[in-house]
Amino acid sequence: MTLGIISLTVVISVILGVPLGLRSALRQGTRTDRTIGTLSLVALSTPPFVLAILLIAVFAVGLGWLPAGGWSESWPDSLRFVLLPSVALAGYLAPQVMRSTRQSALSILNLQFLEAAEARGLSSASVVLRHLLPNSALPIITVIGVNAAALLSSAVIVEVLFGLPGFGLLIQEAVASRDYTVLQGTALVAAVGVVLVNFVCEILYRIIDPRIRIAS
């Protein structure tokens, strides 16, 4: 359950953060850039558990669109239960992805290979998708890898709020019963998970950027 929530959080953060970061970089200094920057600052300043409570109050209690907690045994129905927790965690990760994308894109925008692509007659969308975005991808992967441990710790708290059967509920029950063996086991699994995430990031570096493969 915890792995599923974190995976969906990463997907949501990339879907939101990368386009907003590119948009902010391409509109540097405009009202759009300032608006996106302000919204990302507000989201980043809001703790995930506070955002989770707000999401429950609005989308579960107020509008009734999504469940406020619980779990379903079948996978298609389970997506409804993990959506709000993943959005709450994405409020922490998506602004960092956005900022990283913006900063990386700004450092590339004035390079000659982009000017050469435009001189060959490529459309603005082709230049962004085929040249600007791939060269801005490595810092995005780094942000996700660096924040793996923070995502895991935040997911534990969010799972308790939504009553989901994951690391959060397991740790809560272990603390209540003073089961130190379970606590040590969860800490070990979490540490291994963080190491694996960073290992996957290293592999993605080599896949995305051929210069890393050549240098090694």
Rank of each mutant, 00 (worst) to 15 (best):
I108D: 05
A57W: 09
L20D: 04
A191P: 08
W75L: 15
R80I: 02
Q28L: 09
V160A: 10
N198C: 08
L20P: 08
I144N: 07
L204G: 09
G29N: 10
L39V: 14
S107W: 01
S124L: 12
W65I: 13
W71M: 04
S13F: 07
I108G: 10
G64K: 07
T32R: 11
P48K: 12
A176V: 04
A176F: 00
S24T: 07
V175E: 06
V128C: 02
L152W: 12
L84G: 06
I157F: 04
V197A: 15
P76E: 01
L114S: 12
V61F: 11
V189G: 01
L106C: 05
R102G: 07
F49P: 11
G21E: 08
T142V: 12
V175F: 02
T101C: 11
A68Y: 00
F81N: 10
G185K: 04
S136K: 00
Q28R: 15
S78C: 00
S24K: 06
A176W: 01
A155M: 09
E173Y: 03
L8E: 00
T32E: 12
A148P: 02
I212F: 14
G163C: 02
R130G: 05
S100Q: 15
A25C: 01
V10C: 04
T38Y: 15
R211P: 07
A174V: 01
V189A: 14
L44S: 13
V50W: 13
L16S: 08
A43G: 06
L152K: 11
N198I: 15
I5F: 05
L44F: 14
V195E: 01
L22H: 02
V158M: 05
A215I: 02
A43P: 06
S100L: 14
I208M: 09
G37W: 09
Q184M: 13
S40F: 11
D209S: 10
R31F: 13
V182K: 08
L152T: 10
Y180R: 03
S177L: 03
V189N: 00
R130T: 08
L63P: 05
A57H: 04
L79Y: 11
A25P: 02
R178F: 12
S45N: 10
I212Y: 12
L151S: 09
S40D: 06
C201V: 15
A155T: 14
S177R: 05
Y92M: 13
L84Y: 08
E159P: 03
A155G: 02
L164E: 00
S153T: 15
I6Q: 03
Y205T: 05
F167K: 03
Y205K: 12
L188D: 00
C201N: 13
L41E: 13
T2K: 04
Q103P: 01
P19V: 02
Q28W: 09
Q28N: 12
S45E: 06
V10K: 03
F59W: 08
V11Q: 01
T2W: 07
V175D: 03
V11P: 05
T30K: 11
A88H: 07
T30R: 15
M98Q: 14
E115R: 15
V189Y: 13
R99M: 11
S74D: 13
R23D: 00
A176C: 01
L89S: 07
